[in-house]
Amino acid sequence: MFCLKGKSLITINVNEEDYELLIRPSDILLDTLRNQLGLTGAKPGCNNGDCGTCTVLVNGWPVKSCLMLTAEAVGKKITTVEGLKAAPIQKAFIEQFAFQCGYCTSGFLMVCHALAGIHPDPPDIVIDEWLQSNICRCTSYEEIGTAIRTVLDGKIE
């Protein structure tokens, strides 16, 4: 049985690279990404699963990394904003002014990126449901909606 007793060495795959890390079994994925891997793109916003600034992809699905143990990530493929390779949604966010302070941006990008991959042609209600997982306090959300739609409509290369 896979088990971690006390501080343990594990391997996790982040942005297609394997990292060997010494962790506590109680460590939170968000903290590990930021403090140990220096991947500070995922942000703490509430540490309670309410705001979405810490969203990363786990095997392609959006997950709030503040409510995931690092131990749970073993054997999974984690993608953070640093792992987006010129994804269309990044350009769309810039062109549509879909951020201002930029703090919620990584989380929104990850949700949008996952949505475009999993549901390339979603009805509006699905877009709403996915993106309601995140809070942006600067924009009106309309800009973010336009950005994801330009990507889904293939209007961005």
């Binding site: 991947l39 500070t40 793109g41 995922a42 942000k43 953070t80 904003v81 640093e82 987006l84 990044q90 350009k91 966010f93 810039i94 951020f99 930029g102 703090y103 941006t105 990584s106 990008l109």
Partner: peptide, 8 residues
């Protein structure tokens, strides 16, 4: 800001 490079 869209690549996670902006540091807070």
């Amino acid at each position: 800001k869209v690549t996670g490079q902006a540091k807070y």
